[in-house]
Computed example of a mutant assay.
Amino acid sequence: MSIIFLPRSINAVWPRLSLTVTSMLIPSSFYGRYKAVLTRSRASLRHLARGGQWNEAIGAEHAVDTANCPGLIVLHGPSRLLGDSSHFHCYVHLQQILDALSDGGLPAAVQPEIFHRSLQTAWGVLGLLSQPNVMWLHPKERHEPFLKACLQYWDVLLQEGERYSNGSTTGQGLWAMHTNLKYVLANSGFSIELLNAPLPAGGLADLLRRGGFDFSGASYEPAPDRS
């Protein structure tokens, strides 16, 4: 596993990087066996509880290239089928934060900042796509910035091919998965038949336009969160 060290100002530079590479850079703390990733996520909670920042808490500057690491990109779990091998568990850190928020282990004030930081990276969007993390998409005012970020990183995410998993040992393409993207689209009026069909020739952008979301030339920009 090769680790790439990135600058401290990672949120400023990573969006531009992710649009030009043919594989994804993901924090090394997300990669490994589930139990190892879970242990690291709990260490990140302690960092956040002491007032640390999100990117520092997860060690975002220590990135691994998905092209150099075997395994699946896992969005749901834990899965007994995947427990003995290394994968990218992209949902775990955000899931653990939700648990800590619900039991008082973290103050509610950290949630909006982490949500907006997650929208600024491809791997952050993957965490939000995970079904166990659906509460990150409440209130409904978060849906549009989430959709905009999905569109911004969609080509990067698709380049991984049939490597995504909700716990199965067999990978799938991202659009074939049950994710929070389809949850948000269903709640925006898209039919189940449309969401279960292949994407149109114009891809996700075309689908969003059909539903009245035209983000042409737009990218996610942080905005005040009133939640």
Rank of each mutant, 00 (worst) to 15 (best):
A108H: 07
P198A: 11
T39F: 10
W154L: 03
W154G: 03
L38E: 14
L137C: 11
L204E: 07
D84Y: 04
E113T: 13
Y153W: 08
G211N: 14
R117C: 15
L204W: 05
K140S: 15
Y31W: 14
E56K: 14
R50G: 14
L128N: 13
A108R: 08
F190A: 10
A12K: 10
F115Q: 04
S191Y: 15
C90M: 09
S2H: 13
S79I: 00
V156N: 04
F30P: 02
S130D: 08
P7V: 07
A49P: 09
V64A: 09
N180G: 04
P132F: 07
R80L: 01
P200S: 11
D84V: 04
H47P: 06
P27L: 03
S79G: 01
H143T: 10
R33S: 02
Y183H: 15
S23F: 01
L157W: 00
G105P: 01
F190M: 11
A197Q: 15
L17G: 05
I97F: 03
D99I: 03
A12N: 08
G127L: 08
S41I: 05
F88H: 05
Q96D: 05
P132I: 06
Y183I: 08
L128P: 07
Y34P: 01
G127K: 04
G59T: 10
H76A: 01
C69M: 14
S102Y: 05
Y183T: 09
K140Y: 11
S86D: 05
V110I: 15
P132D: 08
I97A: 00
Q152E: 15
K182A: 10
V92T: 05
Y91W: 12
A100P: 00
T22W: 08
L181G: 03
R16H: 14
A49H: 13
F115M: 07
A63R: 01
R40M: 08
H87F: 06
L151G: 06
L119K: 09
P200Q: 10
L45S: 09
P27K: 06
H138N: 14
K140W: 14
H89Y: 15
S118V: 09
D206P: 07
S168P: 00
P200F: 08
I4S: 13
S188E: 14
S219Q: 15
S216P: 08
W136M: 08
I10E: 00
L157C: 04
G217K: 10
V13I: 13
F115W: 09
G71M: 02
Q131D: 11
Y31F: 13
R117D: 15
L129D: 06
I73H: 01
G203M: 07
L6V: 02
D155L: 07
L48G: 03
S9R: 02
G52T: 03
